[in-house]
Design a protein around this nucleic acid. Sequence first.
RNA 1: GUGGUUGUAGCUCAGUUGGUUAGAGCGCCUGGUUGUGGUUCAGGAGGUCGUGGGUUCGAGACCCAUCUUCCACCCCA
Length: 453
Amino acid sequence: MSTKPSILKGTRDFLPDTMVKRNYIFNTIQTVFQKFGFLPIETPCIEKTETLLGKYGEEGDRLIFRVMNQGESLKKADLKALEDGNIGRFSNSISDKALRYDLTVPFARFVVQNQNELSFPFKRYQIQPVWRGDRPARGRYREFYQCDADVVGSDSLIFEVELVQIFDEVLTRLGLPDFSIKINNRKILSGIAEVCGESENLIPITVAIDKLDKIGKGGVIEELKNRGISNEAIQKIDPLFELSGDNENKLNVLKDFLAESDTGLKGIEELEFVFDAINNLGLQKAKLELEVTLARGLNYYTGAIFEVVANNVNMGSICGGGRYDDLTALFGLKGMSGVGISFGADRIYDVMSELDLFPNELLRTTSYLFINFGEKEQMYCMGLANKLRAENISCEIYPESKAMKKQMKYANDRGIPNVVLIGSKEMEEGVVTIKDMTSGNQVTKSVEEFLKH
RNA sequence: GUGGUUGUAGCUCAGUUGGUUAGAGCGCCUGGUUGUGGUUCAGGAGGUCGUGGGUUCGAGACCCAUCUUCCACCCCA
């Protein structure tokens, strides 16, 4: 019995015309990463569960794809836990491995494990798929690629600046017409909570104010109330909702607001450094915006936080990133500050498709198709193809001497711009007939002239 | 995970208050005399109407379940 084949929800097959566009994105990102001195690594797609669990917050843990144990070890299943409804313990009893949820945590593990082989500050890039047991939606997949660049072993703020430059360079190269790099600092968020006397409620506060642009000021205040934040604190925060003007303005307001908080002021100082540097160096297409409401879900961030959105497109953030002071400490290596960014290639793809930003010539992977007229001609064409390929010109030979109509159609469907016709007549005379598939024009030239280009 | 929504040919969709052999456009295949694609003309193939139950003399249309699609929330790349 054959069933209709299908793939898992949230996963995708990529056809060639999609792949050439995806590769174009990956190559662009990789080129820029290399330009800034980042080195490539890879890590396994499957990790020990203990490596991943507890690094992404409660919601994150829930979305990690667990991989079941094999064979005999399944007998260790904790059926009692299952009966008690303790799904977590039951899962752990039948699974001790999981698919990676992002590239940052495995990277932290990698750094600790290989610390003696690395020289610091270590700058790595990594382009690999990650998996999330999320419900798929527009721009959200269960399997998708992340393109990460991180630096560990330095708390220098020049990396924050360089990472902003990388965002700018990559997305400008890809032709995005209008995008914003939003930046904030966890220390500012801590400072806000501190000034309000709600330090212990940092997470609920940030989650609530993160939604400002979605649910508006009223909605945020309500949410803060629901989360048990005191009225005095809410009143205190209030002016921040009205924060407007340019980045400098916002920083000045914040400076007053956070005057009592050393942590908060430190955050401002860090941001000022980044803004000053970027003002000096300039950006190509990106707008760099201070966004106090930017929080981001990942718990491990401690300093700068980044998020990039494409303007005028209905799509979540296309890139993210931030500084994490102590991620490697979780694996036993202290004092290793890190900062990194991630490009969501799949979402960038979706945005570029929507805005029609892919160059047309991407699909033209083959320049010449040799029409096949028979055994003798085929061999002769293979010789010419050899010479073209030696010059790095891509070409192919139709594999059978089928009806010319079929061969031409193949060239047409494949978007091959030139067809080479060499029948017995051309062979005898030492010439080739070349048809330009766009115009339909045909010219005949000598073999030498054809190979010269 | 919560609420709603969708499912008919490879694709986009029609299909009248349940009633014979389920349609269109595009795509695909074949041909318009054996060296010409894209355009044009003439033919053709292709659907157990998501799946499994149920109501009915009769279901693509109605009911239930399940899967799937899309949207919002949650969260996120």
